[in-house]
Nucleic acid binder design. Structure first.
Lengths: 133, 133
DNA sequence: TTAACTATTGTTAGATA
DNA sequence: ATATCTAACAATAGTTA
């Protein structure tokens, strides 16, 4: 077919109205976000965890984690921080979250997170766990 | 000065060698990642949590969360999931993480996460909590 | 160090299949 | 739904300040 459009238009960053367009945009941008995270991990060795909940009734959850969401989240919550620099300005908050009783990570979880960053394969290997739609 | 460079070059997605370049790239791309997340939240109403640990000795932690990292992380770990669809393929893992005894969130934590997405202000309002550098 | 600049690469909105 | 296409938009690598 003859191409009619002149390509993308600038979009304002406000909540989208059209539901089906929003679903497509969510998919595309979520994949883009995970790809960026993957690149940042590879380029800089930064450890990254991302959790995304889709809105509304669908309410699926997607996640990205290198080396794993749970490991990083545990560390974020303070269970794995060393006792140094206890006078840092946020550390009292972090300490407040220690010893919350979380256990180690299911291996199965990690496996699903691992097979990432194979150039164009981003968006294929993400964890999806929903309860609707 | 006369501009000598021909602009950016294509970069291969492999671990960067130069430490100081890597630090700059980490900063820029982390800001970019958080901006993308912010846009996705606004455009599509998706709730997003991101945690980034910088590598090596610096080992700072940066986070982005709408509405808050902890709330979303708690939900991811399964504390807020409804009892439906218990036969979903990942839900047994999620259930395995329920009742881990985490408490509610410190208000102070959330305040630092809130003031986000003011067009160019991305990267200014992120939480930084380190113990080195 | 951090910020600004800008050519270039990379992402994606809207279209089509 | 899900994938591909591509012009236009946006992010950023290398540089300068």
């Amino acid at each position: 077919m003859a191409r009619l459009s002149k390509g993308r238009k600038k979009v304002e960053i406000v909540k989208m109205k059209n539901e089906s367009n929003m679903q497509v945009t969510l998919s595309k941008r979520r994949a883009g976000l995970f790809k960026k995270a993957s690149e940042l991990y590879t380029l800089c060795g930064a450890e990254i965890a991302i959790v995304v909940f889709s809105p509304g009734k669908a309410n699926k959850v997607y996640s990205f984690g290198q080396p794993s969401v749970e490991l990083l989240v545990d560390r974020f919550l303070g269970r794995d921080l060393p006792p140094r620099n206890d006078d840092d300005r946020q550390n009292h908050l972090i300490r407040a979250h220690r010893n919350t009783g979380q256990r180690g990570l299911n291996k199965e979880f990690m496996d699903m997170q691992e097979s990432f960053h194979k150039e164009k394969a981003v968006g294929k290997s993400l964890l999806e766990s929903g309860r609707g739609a």
